[in-house]
Design a protein around this nucleic acid. Structure first.
Lengths: 185, 185
DNA sequence: TGAGTGAGTGCACTTGGTGCAATGACAGTC
DNA sequence: GACTGTCATTGCACCAAGTGCACTCACTCA
């Protein structure tokens, strides 16, 4: 593979997921990922700030997608409902990448280091959602609680969807939200 | 300081917090922490699995404390109320260590790495609480949502208490819980 | 007094991660 | 066709986190 093959980032992500599935996150070195992608360790760190990040490169796009959906939700929706609607639409966008999503989820589930990173990405997403809710004049703490609850609803629904990839994601979200209401009531 | 001075773990924790406050988490090496504690880097890693963990050594005790309080909550309390009561009592136990808690919080707030670790500790605590709620015959997903909501309530109240260490923690928890109910309703 | 225990140590090693200078494929310009 | 600039990629040296293993040595107890 020549020095100037295109799509270095995609090749690194693909190689990383494949190797993590084969041998487990901790057993794979960055040098091995880079080698499989026909690149070097130095190039890996030009594209990703650390080893975990190769799995979370899509998070920024997902966050942007959620924010876009959130701006399109009817202005007088209650904050929790607004956040849940945006996450439902964002989740539906994700369901296009079914098999890749499963592989990714499996890798994350196998490594505490990756779970840490996922939690902080979700926490950051919650803060962004909360900020957008504040733009709708929702008080700060109510906005944050709504966003956090919506993220919890989304995470539960997404896990359920990974368990049965043929299920309808919007339905899973409705069920998850109903359970959240039962839990808080 | 001789080789057999007692309280190696406490000395390492104390040295770590002091150095992190002085120069920031990332700028301090494990070797420096160990040196200030009169020990070596190797000994540090005999006591803590990694550099972050020196800040979270108390988490296991806190978790055990919460579980104990939870078992003492009246059996027919609603799951969210049960979890919130247990976390309120656990939080009150924490308020004894006021100044140390502030320093710790400040260190964590200054480092994304430490925030990641804190999030996973809280997520683990939520799972433990959820499991105990399931022992009360609360359905799995309701239990998890209740526990996560209670943790969110606790975190908000704890942050408020750090802002004003003279405030009554139980009152802050009540206010935080009320806001959570407003957010979900 | 001598064996055993266990906390602490020294050392070599792997791996994640960074700074810096060099390379070389490509585009555009004269 | 030579010249120039750009930028992804690379090589290299280096630091710090973390580990395995053998060793030391203060203390205990028979």
């Amino acid at each position: 593979m020549g020095r100037w093959e295109p799509n270095a980032v995609e090749r690194l992500q693909y190689a990383a997921v494949a190797l993590f599935l084969e041998r487990g996150y901790a057993e794979v070195t960055v040098a091995e990922i880079a080698e499989r992608a026909g690149l070097t360790k130095r190039t890996f760190f030009n594209h990703f700030t650390d080893k975990r990040e190769v799995i979370f490169a899509g998070a920024a796009a997902f966050e942007a997608d959620i924010v876009k959906h959130l701006t399109e939700v009817h202005a007088d929706a209650k904050p929790l409902d607004a956040a849940v609607q945006a996450l439902t639409r964002g989740g539906l966008d994700l369901t296009r990448y079914g098999e890749a999503a499963c592989a990714r989820r499996q890798v994350i589930a196998s490594s505490p280091e990756l779970q840490e990173r996922e939690l902080i990405k979700m926490a950051a997403l919650a803060r962004v959602i909360a900020k957008k809710l504040e733009d709708r004049l929702v008080p700060g703490r109510i906005a944050l609680f709504s966003a956090q609850a919506a993220i919890a609803v989304f995470t539960a629904a997404y896990d359920a969807w990974i368990d049965d990839i043929t299920a309808d994601f919007a339905t899973l979200m409705r069920q998850s939200l109903a359970d959240m209401h039962l839990a808080i009531s």
